[in-house]
Write a protein that binds this DNA or RNA. Structure first.
Lengths: 263, 263
DNA sequence: CTCAATTTGTTCGTATGTATG
DNA sequence: ACATACATACGAACAAATTGA
């Protein structure tokens, strides 16, 4: 392959990490089938225009991650078991949200009985009279996957303190009789782990995270729950099913056959 | 503040970048109100246990990003206009997907008339007889926000070549008469920019990205479109509205009043 | 007005890690 | 392995702007 992939050291990320990222992407995109031999170090060295040692640093990293197997005299091979990560599958339904929590174990971090009020956007309802702030780390199979900052209306918390201490708050809230949830909005943006987050989630500093914000309104339009959840970015998989598009959803009614305008 | 936030250099991310990430998170989480003065360099220096110069590097970065204003003799202040980024708002509806594309300009990169078949999962329909591979970069206001790799069934492409060259393919496909879309599935995971991606999207290597995969099936269950879109991670905002949860969606029927079990 | 305290801005020398050939 | 180049990080000192006594 005469391919040249330009890599520049602009003052931030070390070269060998960039090359590792590039190769990891190729592996995960399925460029090579599992078990097969990938390019030789010499090929990679000339593709990326870096020194042999730098390529090796990248390969060593991926070998430690279990993505590759390097064998002297033979070559570098894609691991067999590649392909199925254990994703946290998120879909825009209550069901999927609760499924995630079902497997989760919450390790309680702290409780603040008089926290500052959560800030609410214009479309996020009225604040409750008082809140409790619960902080916890959610884990699956002993591996932490999310950090939860949860503002819970005090009058809701008071209904069943023990449940809120022992089970994921969202699950408790949904099942709670007498608290009618009228609407919930979840927004999700992508961020990066600061040092504290990285430590709690067992990821590298600056690694991608998914930051979810939940606002749950009761029938009176009061925000009974305002939560910020920071997930490990490498575990989140969002699955969105779209039904057949209806005419209403099209930008403008299509003009049957006349639409092949010159252009 | 006697707070100490531990930051370690383990051989990957420079300290000043980690500190910048931490402060950026604090700013975006609203720890300080817009316009107010943040901690002095000396305070940050002792919180993070680093040298003065290192803190300054982080502050300079955030100042260039427009989040902070540093003023000699006075202090460092949060920018006034903080808070509203121009998000690409994604919701699980056709409407929102098409809205994004409406503002977008596609700059065409390449076309491959005989690409390898896209790989389809077990639940992703039957492959079409042949595909065309279109590659493009989507921009908004001159700023690129996404890279598109689009496998399009050849018989669909043939219906209106010029439209597919000039407009976002997804929009063309949805509006196309005679191609009845039965189902579309979008999955979204978080990744990182390799060198090539970083260059095309004007972001740093290793910066977070959102990687969307679209599979669109026609009535016969044929995958007429298989697309991989890599978005800039810092522009994506997912908005999910959940209606009032119904009884069906709860893990198990709640037991009216008996549920305050000791625990 | 002057002075001192506070706070950001700048520079020097040195040490260490990364990458090259 | 070695010599070279550059980025990162430290500590310390000094300069310049701002504030209030």
């Amino acid at each position: 392959m005469g391919l040249v992939t330009k890599i520049a050291r602009l003052g931030s990320v070390p070269l060998y990490l960039q090359i590792a990222t590039t190769l990891r992407r190729r592996l995960e995109a399925g460029r090579w089938v599992a078990g097969s031999k990938i390019s030789t170090i010499e090929e990679l060295q000339s593709e990326f225009k870096v020194a042999r040692v730098t390529v090796r640093q990248a390969l060593e990293l991926l070998e430690r991650e279990g993505l590759l197997r390097c064998q002297q005299g033979k070559g570098t091979f894609v691991s067999e078991n590649l392909g199925e990560r254990r994703w946290l599958k998120v879909a825009p339904t209550w069901r999927s949200q609760l499924d995630i929590l079902k497997e989760a174990a919450a390790s309680f971090v702290s409780r603040d009985m008089a926290p500052p009020r959560p800030r609410l956007g214009p479309d996020e309802g009225k604040p409750a009279a008082a809140y409790v702030l619960l902080r916890s780390v959610e884990s699956r199979d002993g591996e932490p996957f999310g950090i939860v900052h949860l503002h819970l209306a005090k009058h809701v918390y008071a209904r069943d303190r023990s449940a809120f201490r022992n089970r994921p708050a969202l699950a408790v809230l949904v099942e709670m009789p007498g608290v009618a949830i009228a609407r919930a909005r979840q927004t999700l943006v992508i961020g990066r782990a600061d040092a504290e987050t990285a430590r709690l989630l067992h990821i590298a500093p600056d690694a991608p995270t998914a930051e979810a914000r939940w606002v749950i309104l009761d029938k009176a339009g009061v925000a009974v729950c305002v939560a910020a959840i920071t997930y490990r970015g490498d575990l989140i998989k969002l699955e969105i099913d779209l039904p057949a598009p209806s005419g209403r959803e099209l930008p403008r009614p299509r003009q049957a056959s006349r639409r092949s305008r010159a252009q």
